[in-house]
Design a protein around this nucleic acid. Structure first.
Lengths: 121, 121
DNA sequence: CTTAATGCAAACGGTTTGCAGCCCT
DNA sequence: AGGGCTGCAAACCGTTTGCATTAAG
């Protein structure tokens, strides 16, 4: 089970408010000074992932974390300003037919669309 | 324009044979000993990307490179053995409708499906 | 009590970069 | 001849890890 520590409460509370994918460093810098160590942020985010409380994405070389919501989502990433725009996932039937062809047992999937947002284009 | 050097010929020839996504290191290790430096592999792969000869993917912390083909493809990635299985992309209409909603100008997209391949499950 | 979580600092590893010399054109 | 390309080694940077200390159950 997951021990409830001061740091974990702070982290979960933060993630609950900001419900967009955020990097460990973004989170760390947003927290009150000295709230916890950067490695604690990393370790706890990974712990949360193990317990399926949080999902881990990857954009560029950076991992982004987000509380798992009831709905699976994807993101439009702006090349210029880096903004993330959430879109609904309607891929289940496509993924099912394609993976069945290869007898592949799906665990997860990840779609990212790159381009320019309305402000930047 | 792109200067034709010994190293670039070797690289392109290699990519042409092996038409699956490969990491810089995989490529480097596959080349005859001393064919070129690792940083030359990286620099040239990136150069090729700039010139749209090569596409750059990202799986885990590693970049994969592949000669651009006429068709856009996606990959099933096996959690266990790391194998890549190519599937066709049928996402254009989904992406078009979703991005139009947000006035987003698409440059590229990337779908990766994780799970277990037939051998490993 | 005893086991897991934390802080700190150092390591990691894939990728990038600075620089001197070399090679295409 | 000159600007791009290469090799080498060092830097980079987000992430991970080892270890001594602290706190949760």
């Amino acid at each position: 089970m997951l021990k409830i520590t001061k740091q974990r409460k702070i982290l979960l509370e933060y993630l609950k408010k900001k419900n967009t994918p955020e990097s460990a460093e973004m989170i760390f810098l947003s927290l009150p000074n000295g709230a916890m160590n950067l490695s604690t942020v990393y370790r706890n985010l990974d712990k949360f992932c193990e317990h399926h409380l949080v999902e881990k994405y990857q954009l560029g070389n950076i991992f982004y974390y987000k509380l798992v919501g009831p709905e699976h989502k994807h993101y439009l990433v702006c090349d210029k300003c880096g903004d993330l725009i959430e879109i609904d996932c309607h891929l289940s039937s496509y993924i099912e037919t394609e993976t069945k062809k290869h007898n592949f047992k799906v665990r997860n999937h990840d779609l990212t669309i790159y381009g320019l947002c309305s402000k930047c284009s």
